[in-house]
C-alpha cells in the first residue's frame, strides 16, 4: 500500500541531467521512450538512480510501517476467519516490503542503509500510516480504500521504466486484489449489520477521509523536474490524476452502501465528468509527514525495537567471510 512518490520541490530541474554524457543520455531516453525496461547494470543518469532509490525505498518503508496499524487488530479480530485473513494480509504487506527493498537494492543501496534511514527519519513513508486504527472498522476502511488507492498507484507505476520495480509491482498487485476484496467484504458486513456496526464503519470513514484524500500526495506543481521524471517513466501520472481515478471508481461504491462522505462539495460535475471536492488540509499533510502526526513516533519506535531485539540473531548467524553482492534483478 503506498501513495505516489514525493518529489522534492527544492531540487533544481536542470540538475537532473547536469554533467551527464549527452550521447549516453540520448540513448537512454530513446530506449525508455521505446518502452524498453531499464535493468540494474545498464547505464542510467545519476538523478534517475537517485529518484528511483528514494521512491522504491519509500514504497518499501510504507509497506513495512503499513503493517502496523492493521497488525494492532490481529489479536482482537472479530472471529477466527477474520483473524486468519488479517494475518495473511499483514504478512503480504511485509512480503511486499521485502520485494521492494530488493528492487531498490539492485540500484546500489543496501538494505541495512535503507532500514537505518527509515529508523533515523531520513527517509519517509506513506503519510496515512501515521494515523491510528481506532476500531476494527478502521482496519476495514484501510484494507478497502487505502489499498484501493495503492492499487491505482501501483498499477500505474508498474508501467514505468525500471525493470526490477515493475516486476515487483506486478507481483504485489496480484496479492493486493485479495486485500481489496477482503476490505470490501469487511466494510459491507459492517455497513449492512446492526446500527452499532453501521455507526462504527461510518465513524471510521469520517476519520479516514482526510488521509485518503492525502494519499496520492499534494497537487503536483508543473515543473521541468516533473517533466523529466515523466519522460524517464519514473513518475507515470500526476497525483491529481490518480486521486481522480480513485474517486471515479470508489465514491459510487461507498455511496452504494448508503454511507456518507464528510465533504459537502464532493460531486461529479455532470457537464465535465470531473470530480469536484474540497482540497484536504495540505498543511496538516506537511505537518504529519514532517513528524508531527498522531503515530509517527510510535511507528518508528516499534520498528526500531524490532530491529534492536532481532539484532543478536542476525549477528549470531553472520558468517565472518560474508561479502555483499548487489542482486542481479
Amino acid at each position: 500500500m503506498y501513495g505516489n512518490a514525493q518529489i522534492d520541490p527544492k531540487e533544481k530541474a536542470k540538475s537532473l541531467t547536469d554533467g551527464e554524457d549527452p550521447v549516453l543520455l540520448a540513448e537512454f531516453e530513446a530506449r525508455v521512450s521505446a518502452g524498453e525496461k531499464v535493468e540494474p547494470k545498464d547505464w542510467m543518469p545519476a538523478a534517475y538512480r537517485k529518484q528511483l532509490i528514494r521512491m522504491i525505498e519509500q514504497h518499501a518503508h510504507s509497506e513495512i510501517i503499513g503493517a502496523l496499524p492493521e497488525g494492532t487488530w490481529i489479536t482482537r479480530a472479530p472471529g477466527f476467519r477474520r483473524k486468519l485473513a488479517l494475518m495473511a494480509k499483514v504478512q503480504d504487506e511485509v512480503g511486499h516490503a521485502q520485494l521492494l527493498y530488493s528492487a531498490a537494492e539492485t540500484l546500489g543501496k543496501t538494505r541495512e542503509d535503507m532500514i537505518n534511514d527509515l529508523i533515523n527519519g531520513k527517509s519517509k513513508y506513506s503519510n496515512v500510516f501515521n494515523y491510528p486504527a481506532m476500531t476494527w472498522a478502521d482496519t476495514a476502511i484501510i484494507a478497502w480504500l487505502i489499498d484501493a488507492g495503492a492499487i491505482i498507484n501501483q498499477v500505474t507505476n508498474s508501467k514505468g521504466s525500471y525493470g526490477p520495480y515493475c516486476r515487483a509491482l506486478e507481483r504485489i498487485c496480484s496479492e493486493e486484489s485479495f486485500h481489496l476484496k477482503y476490505g470490501h467484504d469487511n466494510v459491507v458486513y459492517l455497513a449492512t449489520g446492526t446500527p452499532q456496526q453501521r455507526d462504527m464503519v461510518q465513524d471510521a470513514l469520517n476519520r479516514w477521509w482526510t488521509p485518503i484524500m492525502h494519499f496520492h500526495g499534494p497537487p503536483d506543481k508543473i515543473s521541468q523536474h516533473t517533466e523529466v521524471l515523466m519522460k524517464w517513466k519514473v513518475k507515470m501520472a500526476s497525483n491529481d490524476d490518480m486521486r481522480h481515478k480513485f474517486l471515479e471508481e470508489y465514491v459510487p461504491k461507498i455511496w452504494d452502501l448508503g454511507l456518507t462522505i464528510p465533504d459537502p462539495n464532493l460531486r461529479k460535475n455532470p457537464d465535465t465528468g470531473v470530480w469536484e471536492y474540497t482540497e484536504p488540509d495540505w498543511e496538516e499533510f506537511k505537518r504529519v509527514i514532517n513528524g508531527d502526526g498522531p503515530c509517527n513516533k510510535e511507528r518508528l519506535q516499534v520498528r526500531r525495537w524490532a530491529e534492536e531485539k532481532g539484532a543478536w540473531v542476525r549477528k549470531a548467524l553472520l558468517k565472518a567471510e560474508t561479502k555483499y553482492t548487489v542482486p542481479l534483478a
Binding site: 537505518n116 529508523i119 516499534v302 526500531r304 530491529e307 534492536e308 539484532a311 542476525r314
Partner: peptide, 29 residues
Amino acid sequence: SIDPRIDRLELPANEDGKEVMNKLEQWET
C-alpha cells in the same frame, strides 16, 4: 498506544538519529 502489546514494550519517547543496523547484518542475497 491504543495497542496494549505496544504499551507493554515501554518504548522510550525519543531516540532520534540513532542507527541500529550494522553493515552485512542482513547477510548476503
